[in-house]
Nucleic acid binder design. Structure first.
Lengths: 226, 226
DNA sequence: CGCATGCTTCGACCATAGTCGAAACATAAG
DNA sequence: CTTATGTTTCGACTATGGTCGAAGCATGCG
């Protein structure tokens, strides 16, 4: 057959445990240095270097040198999207639930997915914004309505500034734990950043977990009631 | 970190060239025997057997014994979805376009994606059905409208019979060549089957290519004009 | 019942690639 | 310049796993 593009190459790239751990770590959206990634994956810096070289060659990550550090990040949202999908598959098929610790529950509630809000909180926000007429979904694209624009501006988001780059403003992203859609794209990132700014939530270091503050939780629920 | 489900296991499963070829072959939606899959992948039956065992263990495929044959198929639409996504990534990042032969052009025009219509033709149908008010898209789900129900019935599709199983009637599927949505789900499959029945198109054996007939092309364009 | 066909198991072979120690290179700081 | 830190290259080791030949089951056919 030999049809279509070469799936195996990319899948094999993701298929190594060390590399998978690195990519998962990068799902937070934060760029990490080679050394940090090595620690994340539990391997020596030399080995990490070799893995990162391969990920670069496969265009799954992108790198920016800064001083004597090298900051690695996912090369695009499409990569994050595929990773999230793979997690969904793995969650469904993984016969052996490794461990359903407290960390797991927190992850399912609210976590970072390539710099935007995911988990049940993320889905809650998306459906609420849709119900309130802020978002309009057509085919697989999502658009911000007029009311939505006003809302975001009132929420403290500089839509003008976001409009510059040609990356999509809104993008749907399938949540692996909820199996529903949450908001990705530039707006998704901006919303998370803003909510962090105004003290609704904090990111737990060295993990993808997001923890809402007391007031943040009530205000979030008030704003995005289901 | 050790966050979330084990991506690496599943990705590694897809990451072997032989297995990737098998899975790609199964994307046609037709169940294939172990021997056919071995030939698809260009390996011996023994090797294929070992691979299929692993794919089964990972719940990526499902099997049904029939006489001395064993028919293998993808275990679900979610698997097909991930594979299609991976193809999208590979197509975008694959620096070396293996060969852009005539087969490639036909694949991009119309092909089978887990038993439904994909490629530019598939996208054409989806957008047309949407524009005509047959389909309504909300978040990441797709619903058939009242008009759509009438249309499908008139087209010769037994919606009653489809309604039985609990699999979703309509599902959006991101096309790797067009990077737009086309129609998957039970209705997607029924539409393709119906179009084959009434002679609009034929499937090219041993490939995912779909070829429209003379009349099929004109009638399809008339029905689903962009 | 024998024979053919399709699939699987076992065993052995081999290549690929992940791993780290040692050392080189690059950048920053003192 | 010297020293320290972060990253990469090189080389060698090792293990995992893909591969097939030979043999063993299972099913269908004459």
């Amino acid at each position: 057959m030999r049809d279509g593009p070469d799936i195996a190459q990319i899948a094999a790239l993701i298929g190594d445990p060390a590399r998978a751990n690195m990519l998962t770590a990068l799902m937070s959206g934060k760029a990490l240095t080679a050394g940090e990634l090595a620690r994340e994956a539990g391997i020596s810096p030399q080995t990490a270097s070799s893995h990162l070289k391969k990920l670069l060659a496969g265009s799954l990550v992108r790198v920016r040198g800064q001083g004597r550090h090298k900051y690695y990040g996912l090369s695009g949202e499409d990569v994050a999207h595929v990773l999230e999908n793979l997690m969904g598959l793995a969650a469904g098929r993984g016969h052996l639930r490794t461990q359903t610790g407290p960390k797991d529950a927190e992850l399912r509630s609210a976590r970072v997915c390539y710099n935007h809000l995911a988990g049940s909180r993320g889905v809650q926000m998306f459906t609420a914004m849709q119900k309130q007429g802020y978002l309009e979904t057509t085919e697989d694209a999502v658009h911000l309505t007029e009311e939505g624009t006003q809302f975001c501006t009132g929420f403290g988001i500089d839509l003008e500034g976001l409009g510059r780059s040609r990356a999509p403003l809104c993008r749907p992203c399938l949540d692996w734990s909820e199996r529903e859609t949450h908001l990705a794209g530039k707006l998704g990132r901006a919303m998370l950043t803003r909510m962090e700014e105004i003290g609704w939530l904090v990111r737990i270091p060295d993990s993808r977990i997001i923890r809402f503050t007391r007031t943040g939780e009530t205000e979030f629920d008030a704003q995005f009631s289901a």
